[in-house]
Computed example of a mutant assay.
Amino acid sequence: MSAQHRTAAPRTSGSLARSRPRYGELAVKVVLLLAALVSVLTTVGIVVALLEPTIEFFSEVGLGEFFGSTTWGPLFNPPAFGVWPIIVATLEITLIAIVVAVPLGLASAIYLSEYATPRVRKVLKPVLEVLAGVPTVVFGFFALTFVTPLLQDVFPFLGLDGKNALSAGLLVGVMIIPIVASLSEDSMAAVPNGLREGSYALGASKMITSVRVVVPAAFSGIVAAIILAVSRAAGETMIVAIAGGFKSVFTLNPANEMATMAAFIAQAGSGDASVGSTAYKTIFAVGSLLFVMTFAMNYLSARMVQKYREVYD
């Protein structure tokens, strides 16, 4: 073929190699980086603030006394530093909250993702998420003045002074329902429709498809939502302080008044302990322990999400 009939190869524009810098995109990257650094630096700042008083506390009170006793009363005379009563109370109220929040939250997520029409979903999901914006002090007084009297009609022995772990746990569970429901629904909505259509093609009903196809496919996001809700419940202060009380007793009976780790921090930080005293440093020791527990739960969440994402990707 002659050179006149050859098709000239398209030239690569030099502008592709020497494109103008995109200052807007660079600015967005810088803003996102700063946002990430703020989160990291805040966490580092919390650790630094907790570390020194915690070390000083354990130089005065040994780990054996802290973890080896079931009597807690650092503000009493003589003081007692066995931390297990407030750990057990924290875990017990968190467990009650999860028993409430997980079934209701998952049921809400399944309905919004698989059954609700777009118009209904557009209305119900924001209404559900508004529940997360209710001040926790309102939940606390609601538990104390409404839920506890109702429970006492059924269980007369329940918290004769109006404060008990059961009522506090129930309201903490209601508070974290939006976390479980909203994040789980987002995960279910991200499941490819091809999985649903394949299930329907095999003759499965909508319920079977939802429970046996969509939920397992979204399992990583659901686990992350549940563990995030657990972390939120473990650190709740106002509800457990108002409805659960400040009495530190080593017991598994949810009918009794209990003080959680967060409730103790609120109580001791209100001015009952003089700055620099061992009782004051107890606040930082308990805060460090709560921080470690929350960090462990979030680390577990990240590992489980990574594990199950590898299965379903």
Score class of each variant (00 low, 15 high):
M258L: 14
A49R: 11
I226Y: 06
L158P: 14
F57K: 12
V240P: 10
S69D: 15
A35V: 13
V120N: 11
A49T: 08
M175V: 08
V40C: 07
A263G: 08
E197L: 12
A225K: 03
T136G: 08
S288P: 00
L124Q: 03
T94F: 05
F284H: 10
A80I: 01
S182F: 03
V230L: 15
A262L: 05
S167K: 07
G276N: 08
T117Y: 06
I222Q: 05
I283Q: 10
F142A: 14
L34D: 00
I208D: 13
T70M: 14
S187W: 06
S187Q: 03
V47C: 10
A101K: 10
A8P: 14
D186I: 06
T70Q: 14
H5Y: 07
P156A: 07
V47A: 15
S274H: 04
S167F: 06
F264W: 14
A35F: 14
R11Q: 15
H5L: 14
A97V: 03
F295A: 14
A204P: 02
F246A: 12
T278E: 00
K247F: 06
Y308D: 00
G287M: 01
G45P: 01
D153P: 00
G159Q: 08
I98M: 15
L202H: 07
R232T: 13
N193E: 11
M238Y: 13
T94E: 00
M297N: 03
S39R: 01
I239D: 04
A189V: 13
S113M: 09
V147M: 03
T43H: 03
I265R: 11
I239C: 08
G62M: 09
P79G: 10
A107R: 10
V213M: 04
P53V: 02
S231I: 00
N256W: 07
F67P: 03
M188H: 11
I283R: 13
A36D: 10
N77F: 08
A132P: 06
F81Q: 06
L95Q: 01
W84L: 14
A80V: 03
M1C: 10
P178K: 05
L170K: 02
L91F: 13
S39K: 02
N164S: 06
A168K: 02
A262G: 11
A80T: 14
A255K: 13
L128V: 12
